[in-house]
């Protein structure tokens, strides 16, 4: 029973309540740094680290943090993790850090992270909070990666810098420019909604048939 609880918290972030495709949160990094798969993954990993770390701390201290100053405390915790991520990336992968630029410090302002602390971590035990954070951050990472991969494949004919189609590929320049981010995200959201619509329609038909048959 307990195992399935954790699993439930994990899987909801990956798919059913995906922070990007369903909740449409964290759009700023989503659109800004997904012009290549490597940038998207680096951003996703940094966010993953910040979210899981913050959720763990917030959940651990949830009984000590007074309600009146909880938001300030959450922000201090998140900001600390963001700074750590910022310096670590700058020291380890300066090239990627240069590409991501101001968007690493801006993880602080990612509404998904503060939202998880307020809505989940501050109310649930550590195990569930961490599972929830891993699920949500994993879903975010997945979304960033799929956007980054689509944009890099079409915009540069490559994935992770490896050319896929040979020298003669005609790159879709728009895909690595900002409009490409909006276009790709729009098409993916369209697909998600269409899928949901079809599923609901199917479920309604099934319910109808059962009522008719019974």
């Amino acid at each position: 029973m307990k195992k399935s609880d954790s699993y439930e918290e994990f899987i909801k972030g990956i798919w059913r309540d995906n922070p990007v495709f369903v909740q449409v949160l964290g759009m700023c990094p989503m659109l800004a740094v997904t012009n290549s798969a490597i940038n998207a993954v680096a951003m996703g990993m940094a966010t993953f680290f910040v979210l899981v770390g913050s959720s763990f701390l917030v959940s651990s201290f949830r009984n000590w943090i007074p309600k009146q100053v909880r938001i300030s405390c959450f922000i201090i915790i998140i900001a600390t993790f963001v700074t750590v991520a910022d310096y670590t990336l700058l020291a380890l992968v300066p090239k990627v850090h240069k590409e991501l630029g101001a968007f690493i410090p801006l993880i602080v302002a990612n509404c998904m992270i503060l939202g998880r602390q307020e809505a989940f971590s501050s109310r649930y035990p550590v195990r569930l909070a961490v599972m929830d954070a891993i699920g949500m951050a994993g879903g975010f990472l997945l979304a960033l990666f799929s956007l980054g991969a689509i944009r890099e494949i079409l915009g540069d004919g490559a994935l992770f810098g490896i050319k896929l189609f040979g020298e003669n590929f005609e790159p879709w320049v728009i895909m690595i420019l900002p409009p490409g981010g909006f276009l790709t995200l729009g098409v993916i959201l369209l697909f998600f909604n269409w899928f949901k619509f079809k599923k609901d329609e199917f479920l309604a038909e099934v319910a109808e048939a059962e009522r008719g048959g019974g």
Partner: peptide, 9 residues
């Protein structure tokens, strides 16, 4: 769209 996507062609 075409001009932004394939500026050279």
């Amino acid at each position: 769209f075409l001009l932004a996507t394939f500026p050279i062609a």
